[in-house]
Structure formats: structure tokens, C-alpha cells
Simulated scan of single mutants.
Amino acid sequence: MRWIILDTETTGLDPAQGHRIVEIGAVEVLNRGVTGNHYHTYLNPDRDSDPGALGVHGLTTDFLSDKPRFKDQADDFLKFIEGAELIIHNAPFDLKFLNAELELIGRNPVTDFCSGVTDSLVHAKTLHPGKRNSLDALCERYGVSNAHRALHGALLDSRLLAEVWLAMTRGQDSLMIDTYDAPEAESAEARGQLQDALSLPVILPSAEDLLAHEEYLATLDKSVKGSCLWRQYETTK
């Protein structure tokens, strides 16, 4: 399972108004482990950023003037995401910019190069309806430190989102540890040994435990003047 956690910074809000991407950052997660492999580039958009966008990322026209253009980085970028599932916070925003850049150079949409796209914002809203689900809010909720995030940066935000995404999805797939093993450790024997090491012991209750449990249930029965929910569950099993 290969995920690419991706983020972009742009000159404004809408590529239809001529706005462009100024930074792409992407982090590789393989088998729920951050590998350390990443993609990052600044891009010359051949235009100024809107004041609002500049206030978010701080990438000035002067700073970007000697950076490569998207067409010069497209092959490396597409090779990095090839075959992976993209994890993007508020994915429609980044996708419309990436697809606009690809269209300008006569290339197919980004979804033709990856295995799919998951919007982590939609997932967060499902888990935490009615709550703030910005990246900053999720970092606070899941204990991911973002103290060093004075301005938005595509690579920094991708790294933060990778930690948040792993925390949000922990336990959904397996109880495996969030680390990536090198290919030589991926043999059937090694996987079997790891699964054995992670097997949870089954501890049966003693006679004293069962007696204490029965006394507790009797107390619950008395408090509800009937059968407590546990008794009702036992009769339906």
C-alpha cells in the first residue's frame, strides 16, 4: 500500500483566473510507514501572488523568479506519484490546479497517473462532524506538533498531514506497527514472525473474577429493578 501525501501552494484561489502553482510538496508512505522519500519543488508562476495567498505562503515573486516552471518538473512529479493513492487535504482545490498545469502542457489529468485520490478533509469531517477540521485543528486534536509552522509550506504541510493521516486511520487496516520494513524483511517467514509477536494473549477469568462479576450484575439488576443490559445481551447470544 503506497500513499503519497500531497500539498500545493498557489498564487491565488482559481486557475481559471490565471493563478498558478508555486510549490509542490509530497511525502511517501509505504505500508503505513513514512519512508523519508519525498518530492519538493518551488515553481516560477510567471505572475505575482495575490496578497491573500502571499500572506499564507510568503513566497515572493523575487524568490520564485529563478525557480523552474511546472513544465520542467512535470515528468519528475508524475514519476513520483505514479501508481500511488494520493492523500490531499481539501483535494478538489489542489487537483484543479494540478490538472490546469497539466492541461497547459498537453498532459492528461493527474488521476491518470495515480491509483486514486482520497480527501483527508472529507474523512476528518466524517470522524469529527461539526468540529474544526483544518490541518492545524487536526494537529492539535491528534497531538502532532506544528509549533514550527509560522507560514504554510507544501512540504511541511505534507509531513504534518502524513502524521495526522496515520493517526486518523490507525486501527482501520490492522494492528501492525507504523514502520516500514526494507524489502528483504518482507518474506512470508518474517511476516509470520511479526504477526506472532503481535498476537494478543487470551486471559480467561478466574472463579473469583466470575463471582465478582455476578455480584456486580446483581447490583445493576437491583438499581434498574429488573434485568440490566448485560443480562439482556446474554439471553440473545
Rank of each mutant, 00 (worst) to 15 (best):
R2L: 08
R2M: 04
W3I: 07
I5W: 00
E9H: 07
T11P: 09
L13F: 13
A16R: 15
Q17T: 11
Q17E: 15
I21M: 12
I21Y: 03
G25R: 03
V27G: 02
V27F: 05
E28F: 06
L30Q: 11
N31L: 12
R32P: 01
G33E: 09
N37L: 12
Y39F: 15
T41Y: 04
Y42D: 03
P45G: 05
D48I: 02
P51W: 12
G52I: 12
L54I: 04
L54R: 04
H57V: 11
T61Q: 11
D62C: 06
L64R: 07
S65T: 06
P68I: 03
P68T: 05
F70P: 04
D72N: 10
D76G: 12
F77E: 01
K79I: 05
I81G: 01
E82A: 14
G83C: 09
A84G: 01
E85Y: 08
E85P: 00
I88A: 03
N90L: 07
P92W: 13
P92G: 10
D94M: 11
K96G: 00
N99Q: 08
L102V: 05
E103W: 04
E103P: 00
L104Q: 09
L104P: 00
R107F: 10
T111S: 13
C114S: 13
T118A: 08
T118M: 10
T118C: 01
S120F: 08
L121T: 00
T126Y: 15
T126V: 09
T126N: 11
H128G: 03
K131G: 00
N133H: 11
S134R: 07
A137F: 06
Y142C: 04
Y142E: 00
S145I: 12
N146F: 02
H148E: 13
H152S: 02
L156R: 11
L160S: 01
E163K: 15
E163S: 13
E163Y: 03
E163M: 12
V164R: 06
A167W: 02
A167N: 10
M168T: 03
M168N: 06
T169W: 10
T169S: 11
G171A: 06
Q172E: 15
I177W: 05
I177H: 05
T179W: 14
A182H: 13
P183Y: 14
E184W: 15
E184G: 01
E189Y: 14
E189K: 11
R191W: 15
G192S: 14
G192F: 13
Q193Y: 12
D196E: 12
A197L: 14
L200H: 05
P201F: 10
L204Y: 14
P205N: 04
P205R: 13
E215G: 03
L220H: 05
D221H: 05
D221C: 09
D221N: 15
K222H: 12
S223F: 09
K225N: 15
G226H: 10
G226R: 10
S227Q: 14
C228D: 09
C228R: 10
R231N: 07
Q232Y: 09
Y233H: 11
Y233F: 14
E234V: 12
T236I: 13
K237M: 11
